[in-house]
Design a protein around this nucleic acid. Structure first.
Lengths: 140, 140
DNA sequence: GCGTTACATTGAAAACCATCAATATTGACG
DNA sequence: CGTCAATATTGATGGTTTTCAATGTAACGC
């Protein structure tokens, strides 16, 4: 371990007093899962249509609304269903899908909470940027 | 157009009066881009740390906080930067990153608006599910 | 039964993403 | 100049996701 020019060494941990209370790994992964489920244009549009439809919609309706083929629609519906966001019900030839409003709401709540927890909440009106701005070394 | 047994045919578009005002393709893709940027645990944690740090953090600080190697940290920081969510500033040996609070807020606003637009907003207190529930055909 | 329709599943191809070792770049210091 | 430390970039690898043609399955009508 070489000599020190100041009170801190290169090649070691630096300045931060280390995070106060940030997202831990598990929370981050849970939030990621929620975000990923929504992060696809087809799924967003399917959810959007289902959420606004006055009654459950059959797959052929949904197919008519997005620019992909039927197996792809089924695939995304399956994902949404396994995430608990929609339910399906068979009537005769058709399978009708509808949203589960509580689930969508829960998802929304978790995501908004996550965003708040990210610091995107309180409107700090631009950071004060503390005085420490010498171009030089020492690295607080 | 062939004969009809009732007022509707199989193999044709079905029941929905077609979407009232749902997300169009472009809106869905824009929202998807926002969601994707957040949908990664490493990026979430980096943002979380940066958002709460009292001053800009150097890469070695960030590296210490997430379970991936330095090139990966740089990679994610680059993504966050090109999305306009963080800024970087070089001081001596180190590169300091900080969030752009307005950008994080804008992101948050867009996502929340998207979620509301998805129907996850108004708490409709469980869908009434209109009377049409015969197991049979005719498919309204 | 047979044919037809709606939807699901399978399986394979393509595109994409994340990760890291190796290497390059930049800046400080002697 | 040369060396070292901090970060960026490159390139290769492995994994996941999206998509669709083909095929399977369930329900209806004849």
């Amino acid at each position: 371990m070489p000599a020190t020019t100041s009170e801190r060494q290169l090649g070691q941990r630096c300045c931060l007093p280390l995070p106060p209370e940030t997202l831990d790994g598990d929370t981050a992964e849970a939030l990621t899962a929620d975000l990923e489920m929504l992060a696809h244009p087809i799924r967003l549009r399917l959810l959007s249509v289902l959420a606004k439809a006055p009654e459950p919609a059959c797959v052929c309706d949904l197919e008519a609304v997005v620019p992909v083929k039927q197996p792809t629609v089924s695939h995304h519906l399956k994902l949404l269903r396994s995430a608990g966001l929609v339910r399906s019900e068979r009537r005769g030839h058709w399978t009708y899908y509808s949203v589960k409003p509580e689930a969508l709401q829960g998802l929304r709540r978790r995501i908004v909470a996550g965003l708040d927890h990210l610091g995107a909440g309180a409107i700090p009106t631009e950071r004060p940027t503390s005085t420490n701005h010498s171009t030089a070394d020492t690295h607080p």
